[in-house]
Simulated assay, not measured.
Amino acid sequence: MIDSPLTVPDYLKAITIKDACYLAGKAWGAVTEKTIANCWNKALGAALPQPQHDPEEEDFLGFTEAETRAAEERLEDHLDENLTLRDWVNRWSAAEDDMAPAETFTEEEIIDQVVQEEAEEEEPQPTVAAKSHSDAITDFFM
């Protein structure tokens, strides 16, 4: 598909209904139950009971209108009538390579962070001097 010598518009024009059905089936197969639930929750909002969820397991909820509009404008800038599909994919790949990751940690930094978190979780136990039996009995009756 990427090795096609056709331009992007010509490639899209060459897709048959059968190809479109296979592509749609493949795309639908990649949709998870969680994605569908998030879609309904986003569309109907307060009309549906909100599920309890762990924020760390949150799926992508979609783009805002502003993000979508900005992406469409950037796409129009990159869409050239004579651009081959391979060149188009390479442009997007190069753009992704230019993006800095949010943060990259070395193994040492990860280990240090885990050790520090474990140390913060451990509460120091107060040290109490041991009493002799006679002192304990005296303190008990006094």
Rank of each mutant, 00 (worst) to 15 (best):
M1A: 07
I2W: 03
I2L: 01
I2R: 02
D3C: 04
P5G: 06
T7V: 09
T7Y: 03
P9Q: 09
P9G: 11
D10K: 09
D10Y: 05
K13C: 13
K13W: 10
I15E: 13
I15H: 13
D19I: 09
D19C: 07
A20K: 10
C21S: 15
A24F: 14
G25K: 13
K26R: 15
A27F: 15
A27M: 14
A27C: 14
A27D: 14
W28G: 05
W28K: 13
G29K: 07
G29N: 13
V31I: 15
K34L: 09
T35A: 09
N38I: 01
C39M: 09
N41W: 05
K42F: 03
A43G: 00
A43Y: 02
G45C: 06
L48S: 03
Q50M: 07
P51Q: 10
D54E: 10
P55F: 02
E56G: 08
E56K: 12
E58S: 06
E58D: 09
F60V: 08
F60G: 04
F63R: 06
F63P: 02
F63S: 05
T64H: 04
E65T: 12
R69N: 15
R69L: 14
A71E: 12
L75H: 09
E76L: 13
E76Q: 11
D77S: 09
L79W: 03
E81N: 14
N82S: 14
N82G: 14
T84H: 01
T84F: 00
L85T: 02
R86S: 07
D87T: 06
D87P: 04
W88V: 08
V89H: 08
V89P: 01
R91V: 12
W92Y: 10
W92M: 08
E96S: 10
D97R: 05
D98L: 12
M99V: 06
P101M: 01
F105M: 09
E108N: 08
I110E: 08
Q113K: 10
V114Q: 09
V115P: 01
A119Q: 07
E121F: 01
E122T: 11
E123G: 00
E123P: 00
P124D: 10
Q125W: 00
P126M: 02
A129M: 00
A130Y: 00
K131Q: 01
D135A: 08
I137F: 00
T138R: 03
M142E: 14
M142G: 01
